[in-house]
Design a protein around this nucleic acid. Structure first.
Lengths: 114, 114
DNA sequence: CGGTATCCTATCGGATACTG
DNA sequence: CAGTATCCGATAGGATACCG
């Protein structure tokens, strides 16, 4: 049987779905769109995510070629995360997603306000 | 501690992330963008997904207000799935996602052809 | 035709403790 | 500062069998 993984690298939706499957992926990419950030800067922007999970998702994004990790050889350590070119291209998706998300939120708050 | 769920309905990214978290969500929405489909038409377009899973993800999308389910009282049964208005609005996201996905695939096939 | 009902497994994310 | 090493529980998805 063909799986989703087999479609990775072939179908743009399956590919995107797999890359974005991490629970915090969208928010990590969003945080990095405006500027490169150090590990703890990312942590501060995503306070609800544990350190372990942040590390894991960053590694995954690195493997997918979305994020670049630069280690500066100094004490104390400094590690900087920035989007790759293709990662930066994702900004367009993020913008339409934000637009839609806001509309969705408005739409639903009208009938079931929190 | 605040969780992702608390951000649902507030942050557009967290909201979108949650809605799109289903493994086949993007492909289901994509299949429904062009026209409403019956259950087994969806199955045929998504042959790699089990019936159980298709049902579950459709129910989830229905709960989120993305998909509308219409049951026609006839024998044999006919059930039609179509996108709601806000579901249709997602088409813009899908288009930018497709564009990015194709670019991503091209980009990666150049250095690591399958 | 369009599902349910179960069961089972893999993976993922959270919690906690420790480290160069 | 930026991790790693473990362990654990939740849950999502697949497989299979059956139903109105």
């Amino acid at each position: 049987m063909q799986t989703l993984e087999d479609l990775f690298g072939k179908c743009p939706y399956a590919t995107a779905q797999k890359i974005l499957s991490g629970k915090w992926t969208l928010m990590i990419i969003h945080a990095l769109v405006s500027e490169p950030l150090r590990f703890n800067e990312l942590q501060r922007q995503l306070p609800d995510m544990t350190q372990t999970t942040l590390t894991r998702q960053l590694r995954a994004l690195e493997d997918y070629g979305i994020v670049n990790r630069t280690v500066y050889a100094q004490i104390p350590p400094k590690v900087e995360y920035k989007l790759t070119d293709i990662g930066m291209d994702f900004k367009q998706v993020l913008m339409s997603l934000e637009h839609w998300g806001d509309k969705y939120i408005d739409y639903h708050n009208q009938r079931a306000p929190l």
